[in-house]
Nucleic acid binder design. Structure first.
Length: 495
RNA sequence: UCCUCCAUAGCUCAGUUGGUUAGAGCAUCUGACUGUUAAUCAGAGGGUCCCUGGUUCAAGUCCAGGUGGGGGAGCCA
C-alpha cells in the first residue's frame, strides 16, 4: 500500500497543474502582482547565467524574467532551455532585484513543453534583416518586431470596426468570388474548377465556360465597392472590410496580390462629407492605437530610428513615429483641388529646376514624385486632393458641373502616398450609362448596379482604404510584405 | 513589366592590381564564472564563395547567360 503514496502525490501535483490556469505575461508586470502563485507558458527568448530565462508568450512586447534555482535544476533540463523552446513554469511573482523589469517569477516547477534545437532554430536573439525573416515567415512572429507589428495590426483592425460601429455603420460581407468583371480596378485572378489539361471547348473553339462551376467566368474580387453601394442604398451607411485580390505584376514595397481593404459607402453624402468621414476615420483609428499600443509603438519607433541611422539625413523622418501619428490626429487635413495642385507643382523649385522626371500638366495623373513633393515638402502632412480630370478616373465617379472633372478625392500621407481613394458616385442614370459606353462596359454586365439608379437613386459617396498601407503608416514598416503575416506577391505564395 | 544594386560560415558582413591553407563579429559546441538584461571570459567546430558556361598557367575576384533577393518606377490600395 505504501508504494502507492508517491504515485498519488505525483497524480495530485499533475492535477493541480492542470487546474491552474495559465496567466498571460501582460498581466504580471506590475507590483500589485507580487506574491501571487502563477503558471506561465511561453517561448524562451534568452537564457542567461544558467539562471535567468526571458520568457515571451506574445501577450505583450516584453518578456517575463523567470529565475530558476541553478543548483536544484537538473543539468539535462537546463540544457533544453534554449532560444525558441516552449516551456511552462510555476512559481511566485516577486519584485525583481535586477533593473529592467518590475517583477519576475521565482520558479518552483519547470517543464519543457517543446524543444527548439539551437543548431537549427533560425531566429537568434540578435538583429536579423527583414529580408531574412521574410523567408522565415512562419517563425518571424517570434521576434519582437513582428510581435509588435501584428499586435498593432489587430488593434487597427478593431479600431476600424469600432469607428464605423460607433458612427452607425453596418458591415457588409461582399463576395470574394465575383461574376462581375467590370470593376476596372485591376487585373483579376480567375476562379475555375475546369480541368486545365482538358478544357471543354465551344463550337467556335473557345473555352466553354458554361461548363464551369458558375456557368460563366468568375474571378476573385478586386473591390467590394459596387456591392457596398447596393447595401448603402438601403441600409444608409455601410462598410466592407475584407480581402481583395489583384493579379497585377507589381513588384514594389507597397503592393500585394492579396490585401485587405476597407470601403465605406454612405447614402445622401456628397464629396465634402466623404472627405470629413475619411479624416474622422483616420484620426479615430490613430487615436485608438496611440492610446492602446504604446509599448509596441515605442518599440517600433526605436526600431525605425535605428534603421534610419543607415540612411542619409534627408531620407530620415524629422519626427519620431508616435509624434508623427499624434500630429495627424491634431492637425486638420489640408484640402487642395487637382487643378490647384498642378499650379503648386508648376511653381515648385524641382519643377523649375527640371528635377521632376514626369511632366506636370493639367490632365496628366500625378506621379509618385509629385505626390511626395506635395505631401512631404509643401504641406508636410496629410493632404486631400480633389476634383481630378474625368479621363484619369473610374467610370462610377460623379461628373462635376465644369464637364471636365469628377468629384474624386485621394488622401495622401507622408511616406506612403495614397492611403485612401474615394469619390462621390454618379447617381444620375443617363450620365452613368454614358460613362459605361465610354469605358466599354456592357450595360448587361452591370444591370444590377444601374438598377440602383433606376429605383430610388440618391447622392452617395464612399472611399477605399488599403489596410496594409495603414498598418505600414502606423508601424513605420517600410515594406508592405512585413505588415501582413503571409504576403502574396508575384512568384511567391510560400506558406 | 522596366531601371538599378546585390548574392562568401546558421546570421550580418570583410576579402587588395586575378596568386599559396577564404577571414571577422554574432550564433552554436566545450569549459570557467554566476543577479544577469542581446551576460562575461577562454577555447573549438563550422564553407557547393548562388547555378551553368567562358577567359586564364591560375577565378570568391574578370566576362556571358540563368536563378533568387533588395531599392526605385509604372499600375494602384
Amino acid at each position: 500500500m505504501l508504494q502507492f503514496v508517491p504515485f498519488l502525490c505525483i497524480l495530485i501535483t499533475r492535477t493541480i497543474s492542470r487546474i491552474m490556469q495559465r496567466e498571460r505575461i501582460v498581466n504580471l508586470r506590475d507590483e500589485a502582482q507580487v506574491g501571487r502563485k502563477v503558471l506561465v507558458q511561453g517561448w524562451v527568448r534568452t537564457f542567461r547565467n544558467d539562471q535567468f530565462i526571458a520568457l515571451n508568450d506574445g501577450s505583450c512586447l516584453s518578456s517575463l524574467q523567470l529565475v530558476i534555482d541553478r543548483e536544484a535544476t537538473d543539468d539535462a533540463v537546463k540544457k533544453r532551455i534554449t532560444t525558441g523552446a516552449a516551456i511552462a513554469a510555476k512559481g511566485v511573482i516577486e519584485a525583481s532585484q535586477g533593473r529592467g523589469q518590475v517583477t519576475e517569477l521565482k520558479v518552483t516547477d519547470l517543464e519543457i513543453l517543446g524543444d527548439a534545437d539551437p543548431e537549427l532554430f533560425p531566429i537568434q536573439m540578435k538583429r536579423h534583416t527583414m529580408e531574412f525573416l521574410r523567408e522565415k515567415a512562419h517563425l518571424r512572429f517570434r521576434t519582437s518586431t513582428f510581435g509588435a507589428v501584428f499586435r498593432v495590426r489587430h488593434a487597427l483592425n478593431f479600431a476600424v470596426h469600432k469607428f464605423f460601429t460607433d458612427e452607425g455603420f453596418f458591415q457588409i460581407h461582399t463576395p470574394i468570388i465575383t461574376g462581375s468583371d467590370a470593376e476596372g480596378a485591376g487585373e483579376m485572378f480567375q476562379v475555375t474548377t475546369l480541368d486545365l489539361n482538358n478544357v471543354p471547348k465551344a463550337e467556335d473553339g473557345s473555352i466553354d465556360f458554361a461548363e464551369d462551376f458558375f456557368g460563366k467566368t468568375a474571378n476573385l474580387t478586386v473591390s467590394g465597392q459596387l456591392e457596398a453601394e447596393l447595401g448603402a442604398m438601403a441600409l444608409g451607411q455601410v462598410y466592407t472590410f475584407g480581402p481583395t485580390f489583384r493579379a497585377e505584376n507589381s513588384n514594389t514595397s507597397r503592393h500585394l496580390a492579396e490585401f485587405w481593404m476597407i470601403e465605406p459607402e454612405v447614402a445622401f453624402a456628397d464629396l465634402a462629407s466623404n472627405m470629413k468621414l475619411a479624416e474622422d476615420c483616420l484620426k479615430s483609428i490613430l487615436r485608438y492605437v496611440l492610446a492602446s499600443c504604446d509599448e509596441d509603438l515605442e518599440f517600433l519607433e526605436n526600431r525605425e530610428i535605428q534603421a534610419e541611422k543607415q540612411l542619409p539625413q534627408d531620407q530620415r523622418h524629422d519626427a519620431p513615429l508616435r509624434a508623427r501619428l499624434q500630429a495627424v490626429v491634431d492637425t486638420p487635413f489640408q484640402h487642395v483641388t487637382y487643378t490647384e495642385a498642378i499650379d503648386l507643382l508648376q511653381c515648385s523649385k524641382p519643377y523649375k529646376k527640371k528635377k521632376f522626371k514626369y511632366p506636370v500638366e493639367w490632365g496628366v495623373d500625378l506621379q509618385s514624385e509629385h505626390e511626395r513633393w506635395l505631401v512631404e515638402k509643401h504641406f508636410n502632412g496629410p493632404v486631400i486632393i480633389t476634383d481630378y480630370p474625368a479621363s484619369i478616373k473610374a467610370f462610377y465617379m460623379r461628373q462635376n458641373d465644369d464637364g471636365k472633372t469628377v468629384a474624386a478625392m485621394d488622401v495622401l500621407v507622408p511616406g506612403i502616398g495614397e492611403i485612401i481613394g474615394g469619390s462621390q458616385r454618379e447617381e444620375r442614370l443617363d450620365r452613368l450609362q454614358a460613362k459605361c459606353a465610354e469605358f466599354n462596359i456592357p450595360e448587361d454586365h452591370v444591370w444590377w448596379y444601374l438598377d440602383t439608379r433606376r429605383f430610388g437613386s440618391a447622392v452617395h459617396s464612399g472611399f477605399g482604404m488599403g489596410f496594409e498601407r495603414l498598418v505600414m503608416y502606423v508601424t513605420g514598416m517600410t515594406n508592405i510584405r512585413d505588415v501582413i503575416p503571409f504576403p502574396r506577391t508575384p512568384q511567391n505564395a510560400e506558406f
